[in-house]
Amino acid sequence: MRLVELSRAEHSGLRIDSHLAEAAAAKQHLIPIVASEFRKAATQYPIVFAKSPETGRFAAFVLNGLQPQENLFWSGTKLDTAYVPLNIRRGPFFVGTGESSGGANDNVLCIDVESPCLSAAGQKSIVDPDGSDSQYLREILAILRELLDGQEPTSSLINTALSLDLLCPIVLDIVLEDGKPLQVEGLYSIDEARFRALGKEQVEMLWNERLMEPIYSVIISTGQIFNLVRLRNEREALSRAWRDTGK
């Protein structure tokens, strides 16, 4: 990966294949999301919390696989899901903190010039022939905006959940159809019993802070783990059939 600041003049000729952006998720079992995505994400994935190995702080993720580097939605060409997280859809674009424009905290739009999405056969470009931002770039900017704006509410949700003692470690103790045991560790979720035991004042606070919806999204989304197990079983069955026919 090599990030450079995007220049509409310099990069006007770039062609981008936005479908290839999804390939970046092929080996990710955890994809970070922000609170504004919870409701949509909950229809497809378990939403979990996990600690950053660098800081130990919690972040929110959608769980895509039952072990590190496994993405059960990756079909080989695309993510087979009705909701692709913003962090994947933003493709080869990133937000960097710039030094060039003076203030150290200025956000700078960057592009990974080593991304496989950059391809001469790509359909998308960042500027239209008249030099204005393309529809594609405007969509990307909206995605990056949502991710940036989503940071504060997401950490506020996590901090509130921590202060109310609502996060709890979940250990997925799964036995696959072929009898193979599987343990997934290091994941956290909302403790439903503790959530239900909250007092009136705390519930009112969550309501006022608009945290009820994301919390319920997390609780409901845990059922998606069954979907991951189903996908994994299918995958195992497929590879067994493959091996058996090979004999």
Binding site: K51, T55, G56, R57, F58, C168, P169, Y188
Partner: peptide, 11 residues
């Protein structure tokens, strides 16, 4: 140093 900067989580 990291503990002092980021803190450890309770869980």
């Amino acid at each position: 140093n990291k503990i002092k900067e980021f803190g450890l989580q309770k869980i």
